[in-house]
Amino acid sequence: MRVLVCVKRVPAPGARINITPDGLAVDTAYLAFTTSPHEECAVEEAVQLVERHGGESTVLTLGPAEADEQLRYAASIGVNKAVLLPIDSAEWDPQRTATAITTAIRTLEAADGPFDVILFGNESADAGNFQVGVRVAHALARPIVNGIKGIEVDGDSLKARRESDAGVEVYALTMPVVLGVKEGINLPRYPTLKGRLGSKKIEVGQVVPEAVLGGQQMVSLVQSAEQVSQTIMLGNGPEAAPAVVDLLEELGILK
């Protein structure tokens, strides 16, 4: 089985996201970076699929040169190959990103054969455009279902599960497929020391992306209105318990 997983490098913010003075980007001067959470699980799923069914996994990202870090992290937990689509900024608009990734997938498949499963995160943690995977799948004429929290492979077919308000929906698909994965599908492993060392040595392939601008263009980022709250202090330590229970009665929670 050949599995491709597409990821995005995103900042790892704490309690507040600050914006650069020009209003065009998140101020990342004091932030670490990570793989967007849904995609972190997609990477783990790619590794597990290959562990269970054999084959090879590849991780791909469109991002700045520094996204090499996220590719090598994926390699450190067991992904076999890595490909960077280098760009000069933190991100491209979603249409342009999808076009570039589609072209890169065609190039990779022409060289090494088709991917049976292509995994995306359901949406990126930062931009949250909810569309790159769908656009890529459509361009490749392959089925895609988003929100996937469980994958079971049986020969050429595959069952994908997702949660809905009513319960669980199961989709029965035939490979090749594209899936948008959600956090919770698995618990990503931590890299071993051996994995970390090995990931430093892998060769990161490059496909230079080319695609025209899409119809959605960012003008600026704006801080959303901070929820201002006058916190009422109910007390310190266990002595505050009666005040808490008074509140539970007042709010009608304790009847």
Partner: peptide
């Protein structure tokens, strides 16, 4: 205007279509 980061940041963008 759209939300990013699940609502903790807003993005102003143009839409041409």
């Amino acid at each position: 205007t759209r939300v990013r980061w699940g609502g903790s940041l807003l993005e102003a963008c143009t839409l041409t279509a």
